[in-house]
């Protein structure tokens, strides 16, 4: 496992970091956004399990405001971890596409 704990493209922590990359969101907005861009429906239990781990690792942090719909934002270490994970995924994707002859570049 990578030091950031991010492993696969459909990992809830990775999806959450991608969703927060363009700005803070609360739980419901996160779930809807992830469903829109990844086609993955994260249940409340899975979503908050991943949020808990990301907060523990310092990759995201809560913002003040409404306690019941608290928004979260990505931290600088979170951005770095996301960039590293996406670079890994891009390398694998490029290799796979090239070997299938789908991406001559």
């Amino acid at each position: 496992m990578a030091p950031s704990g991010l492993r696969r493209a459909n990992d809830p922590p990775l999806l959450i970091l991608v969703s927060l990359a363009d700005g803070p969101k609360h739980g419901h907005a996160l779930a809807k956004d992830i469903e829109d861009f990844a086609g993955v429906r994260l249940g409340p239990g899975a979503l908050y399990g991943a949020i808990t781990r990301l907060v523990e690792r310092g990759l995201i942090e809560p913002l003040g405001g409404d306690d019941r719909r608290r928004p979260y934002r990505i931290t600088p270490p979170g951005s770095a971890a996301l960039a590293g994970a996406l670079a890994d995924l891009r390398r694998v994707t490029s290799a796979g596409l090239a070997r299938l002859g789908l991406d001559p570049a």
């Binding site: 739980g27 419901h28 979503l47 908050y48 306690d67 608290r70």
Partner: peptide, 13 residues
């Protein structure tokens, strides 16, 4: 720590 937030998410869902 997270109970109220999770309840709000469940209610929204």
């Amino acid at each position: 720590r997270y109970g109220e937030e999770l309840l709000a998410l469940i209610q929204d869902t």
